[in-house]
Every structure is written in C-alpha cells, then in structure tokens.
Amino acid sequence: MRTSEALLIVSVVAVVTYAFRAGGIVLLADRGLPAPVARAMRHVGPAVLAALVASIAAVGPDGSTGVGVAEVAALVATAAVARWRSNLLVGLVAGMITLWVCMALI
C-alpha cells in the first residue's frame, strides 16, 4: 500500500471522527436539547455500551460469530460482581478469570 494512500485514509477518518464527536457539543451546547431528545439521550449510555458488548462478545478471535458458554459466563460474572461491589475493576477481574477458567474446563 502506498504511504500517500494510507495518509489519506488516516487524515479523512481523523477529520470525520472529530466532526462526529464535536457536532453535538459545539452546535447544541448553547441551544439546549428539546425535551423529548434530552429524554432519549438519557438512554444512549446503556444502549450503546450494551450493543458494544454484543459486538465484541459475539465475534471470536478468528472472526467467526456466535456466543460461547465461556463468554456468557464471563459476562454474567462481571455483571453480578460489578453490581454487587459497585466496582468496575473488581468486575473486570472476575469476568476475565471466569472466562479463563471456563475456557480451561470446556
């Protein structure tokens, strides 16, 4: 691949990504959001992060799609421990250990 072509890709993606991230902040900060939009935005965090979980958990290291027992067990363990302790790091450790133990057993 030519360096100029790679440079073009990185530059365009960087500019567009900044525009995506800046749009709401720069254009809407002074105007405020209409009530229904503000109400919907309250759910962006849970919805997007959950969709990201699906996208990562259901794609294996080889690119194949599907959810395995070990992955489900790891996510359940993470959810339970994180909620119980209200601590993200403890949940992360519990989830990864569960994944490794399940992978070793299955």
């Binding site: 990562i56 958990a57 996510l75 993470t78 959810a79 909620r83 993200l88 992360l92 989830g95 990864m96």
Partner: peptide
C-alpha cells in the same frame, strides 16, 4: 483472549 476485556469492561459499566 485479551480482546475480550473491553466487552467485560462495557458490561460492568452498563450494570453499574
């Protein structure tokens, strides 16, 4: 499977 860690992190963030 270090690539799985972000899924675990996002899961924890959602639950909390």
């Amino acid at each position: 499977r270090l690539g799985f860690a972000p899924a675990v992190m996002f899961c924890g963030l959602v639950v909390i």
